[in-house]
Computed example of a mutant assay.
Amino acid sequence: MEQNERLLHSSSFGAAAPAYAEHRPDYAQAAVRWALEPAPGPRVLDLGAGTGKLTAALVVLGAEAIAVEPDPAMLAELGRALPTVRALPGSAEAVPLPDASVDAVVAGNAMHWFDMDVAGPEIARVLAPGGVLAGLWNVFDNQVDWVARLERVSGSAAIGPRDTRSSWRAETAGAHLPRAGLVARFGSPEQTEFPHGQRRTADSLVATFATKAGVLVMPEQEREATLDPIRAYLTSRPETAHGEFTLPMLTGVLRVQRL
């Protein structure tokens, strides 16, 4: 993705912040625990925190969570949901925290938006020695037949390669890499995933797809042309046509430790 296109997509979420807060999934607790397992202490920065989906999981685990988010509308939703969490305006490229002030930096469905040429040194700066950098992504389990068919119906704007069990590892393997000579400061990356089903209806799953960056940036007519076949498919399938169903998902984690 070109730089201008990446910026357009990454800045698209604020206009849909309430829908994002309502419809985007949370993260598997087991995945969050694994991400933080090597961290030397409880201070955790959620970077690109959005509306606080991952921040909430950190709070449940007892972490000393700090949220940093560049979009004011997303940050406002986070503040409403988690009023006791320290939430700051800022970005991965300009983290408003002192040197060596956190034991872990995590990013939920956000690390792929970071400009790691700039964000890499910033993350290394705020991480204490032995600290952990972890990216988490919620992905569709396309080993399930009806989910694989949903992937084909949806198109890449709604379900991209990074969003599926079969390809998330390859798509995110290099997402953490801090450039500009910082690679030597980090250990070898590790990847794994954890089961994470989500309760949905056909309407709420379509609403979830409507919060994807590739859909948000579309003109309205094109957006409806993308979502209508998804809606039609979901209302035609026995697994999804009648009330609530469990959407088969996983939370994938990429983690690397600062040396």
Rank of each mutant, 00 (worst) to 15 (best):
V102M: 05
V105K: 02
V106W: 00
G108L: 03
N109M: 00
A110R: 06
M111C: 03
M111V: 06
M111N: 04
H112Q: 10
H112Y: 06
H112S: 07
W113F: 15
W113P: 14
F114W: 07
F114D: 08
M116K: 03
M116I: 01
D117W: 09
D117E: 11
V118T: 15
A119N: 00
A119R: 01
A119H: 04
A119L: 03
G120V: 02
P121M: 06
P121C: 07
P121S: 09
E122H: 09
I123E: 06
A124V: 13
A124F: 08
R125C: 14
R125L: 14
V126E: 12
V126N: 13
L127E: 04
L127Q: 01
L127G: 02
A128Q: 09
A128C: 03
P129W: 05
P129F: 03
P129N: 03
P129I: 00
G130L: 01
G130W: 02
V132G: 12
V132Y: 02
V132E: 03
L133Y: 14
L133N: 10
A134Y: 00
A134V: 05
G135V: 00
L136S: 05
L136N: 05
W137P: 07
V139G: 03
V139W: 12
V139N: 11
F140R: 07
D141E: 13
N142H: 15
N142I: 11
V144D: 10
V144E: 13
D145I: 06
A148T: 05
L150F: 09
E151R: 14
E151L: 07
R152E: 14
S154E: 09
G155P: 12
G155V: 12
A157W: 04
A157L: 15
I159F: 01
I159L: 12
G160V: 02
G160T: 04
G160H: 06
P161R: 14
R162V: 14
D163I: 08
D163S: 13
D163L: 05
R165I: 04
S166L: 05
W168E: 04
W168C: 01
T172G: 07
A173L: 15
A173K: 15
A175R: 06
H176M: 08
H176W: 15
H176I: 01
G181R: 10
